[in-house]
Simulated scan of single mutants.
Amino acid sequence: MNPKISDFGMARTFAMNELEANTNRIVGTHGYMSPEYVMNGIVSMKSDVYSFGVLVLEIISSKKNNGSYDTERPLNLVGYAWQLWNEGKALELMDPTLDESCSPDEVIRCIHVGLLCVQDRAADRPTMSDVVSMLTNDTMALSKPKQPAFYINISSDYEEPEVTEIKLEVCSVNDVTISRMEGR
Rank of each mutant, 00 (worst) to 15 (best):
V43P: 00
L135M: 13
N65D: 08
N153M: 09
A90C: 11
D105F: 02
L57Y: 00
S6D: 11
Y158W: 12
N17H: 14
W85K: 06
T177K: 02
V118M: 06
Q83E: 11
A123I: 13
Y32V: 11
H112P: 02
V132F: 00
M181S: 09
N65G: 09
V38H: 01
I26W: 00
G88F: 07
A90P: 03
L91F: 09
M134Q: 10
R184L: 07
V54M: 03
L93S: 11
K167Q: 12
I26E: 01
E169V: 11
M94A: 15
N65H: 05
P35L: 06
N24T: 14
D124K: 04
V54Y: 01
G183Y: 10
R73T: 15
K167V: 12
E58P: 10
L75P: 04
L135C: 10
F14E: 06
L91N: 14
M140C: 09
F14N: 02
D130S: 14
E159H: 10
L19H: 13
R180I: 14
R25T: 14
T29L: 11
I5C: 03
S101M: 15
K89E: 13
L75E: 02
P161R: 02
S155G: 07
A149V: 01
Y80W: 14
I5H: 00
S133M: 06
L55C: 02
M94V: 15
E169T: 11
S68R: 05
F52A: 06
P145A: 05
A141D: 11
R121D: 12
D99V: 14
E159P: 00
P74C: 05
E182R: 12
N22A: 12
